[in-house]
Write a protein that binds this DNA or RNA. Structure first.
Lengths: 241, 241
DNA sequence: CGAGCGATTGATCGCCATCAAAGTGGGTGG
DNA sequence: CCACCCACTTTGATGGCGATCAATCGCTCG
């Protein structure tokens, strides 16, 4: 189970982790000024997740919301016979867990070791009441995720296996550039199975498509979890938007 | 082109169409009290759309937001070679057109003759600034659509043709029950092609699946745009969530 | 009555799934 | 340190679901 490693200490003030938070500028908290952030931090706890650990399951009551500060996660749903669909991947700075339904509709699991900031729902909502600009930010986040989900509908409904894999690599490249790496160097934190379940394919097809892209000198496989895009313009043309 | 049939007359007051609006309680406006509604109505115009007409196109700047007061619409995207994906259908009371991107990502077209209430974006946002409870409603709408889109991801990525069609019929039944009709009587305003492009199938497959369901006595085709669900429990079991 | 469009039905094809087996690499215990 | 193990990945052979191609049906409207 996930373990809370540091309850927030109100007296820490300036050296509170939030102030040094690597994702503060790109995440929900970005709209808060330092005094507001101070009050916001007081309702959050840091939670560490080992690779594969579950943060919340489909059907769980939505007890808290989270910001992912490091690592990567997946949102997935299982059908009764074991088929799985991954609705999205989450990276540093992403926000998760907020829903208007009375239960989570997807399961959130850590892909690699991850750290999230946990905000109990009631206290989060109370904070929202006093900070309308944060509510607006929240709407912007939801609208952006809606746009991404609808884009994924096009991919799943109408694209070929090749187009799916190429689109996925380009998305990864724009979302998750390898830290300090060269341009077009892409980190691939998830397994081939995760990729397959995100793209509506089987693992063998993903593997074959990657091999084919390698053979065509469009990508270079620098490891199972890293690769390089060798011809982004041609890849973009192959992705069909 | 769509035609504005009635600019709002501020002096109309109580007999303004909004007060009699058939979708007021289920739509965005539902959170407004009558005096707020009076001010809100002042920024809206009624627009009629003939079947097939376009309200906005992918790429258009998002100049306004809309509430659909009658009829049905579709949100779609075209790939360069003509493949089409429909991201969703809209019915009475649905809200559309709001995006945080700088262009619409999908095209909105009327399926049958439709009527929308049009709110210019700038004035809509100014109104939002003064009505935080409406902003919250807006977030709830976006979150709900996000949930629906993710559910559709599962359908497109992992369900069989039969499961797709059955899931679609059940969704239609819950969203769009035939007015004044018997229970399990379902209106199907869209064409087979629209259904196919929503489910990631071809028209022939949709037709075959419907015929198969009819042959199995699970549905009854009462017309090309109407049918009856004869065994909802079994259909639900076939839909795989 | 005929034209035209959407829907249905039939025959065949091809992409990707499935089944099967071998390769790879990271971690653990001897 | 090395050998083994196990999970993940890759590669190969075959099959099936849904796409594609093609023809007919049936309704609406002129």
């Amino acid at each position: 189970m996930a373990t809370a490693v540091s309850d927030v200490q109100p007296e820490l003030e300036q050296d509170h982790p939030c102030f040094a938070c690597v994702v503060r500028d790109i995440s929900l908290c970005g709209v808060l000024e330092s005094d507001e952030l101070r009050r916001f931090k007081a309702i959050g706890t840091t939670v560490q997740l080992a690779a594969g650990e579950t943060l919340f399951m489909e059907g769980d009551p939505p007890a808290a919301v989270y910001t992912l500060t490091s690592g990567a996660m997946r949102l997935s749903k299982l059908l009764s016979d074991g088929r799985r669909q991954i609705a999205g991947f989450l990276f540093r700075g992403d926000f998760l867990g907020l829903t208007v339904e009375d239960a989570h509709l997807f399961t959130a699991e850590a892909i690699g070791d991850s750290v999230v900031c946990r905000f109990p729902r009631a206290r989060f909502e109370a904070f929202l009441d006093e900070h309308p600009q944060m509510e607006r930010r929240l709407f912007a986040i939801a609208a952006h995720e809606l746009a991404a989900a609808r884009q994924q509908l096009v991919l799943l409904g109408r694209k070929t296996a090749t187009e799916k894999v190429v689109s996925f690599l380009l998305m990864l490249a724009s979302r998750c550039r390898k830290e300090g790496g060269l341009a077009d160097e892409v980190a691939v934190p998830m397994t081939r199975n995760d990729i397959a379940d995100y793209l509506g394919l089987r693992i063998e097809t993903v593997s074959r498509e990657l091999t084919a892209l390698k053979t065509s000198r469009l990508i270079q496989l620098t490891g199972t979890h890293a690769l390089r895009l060798l011809d982004k313009p041609r890849l973009r043309a192959m992705a069909e938007a």
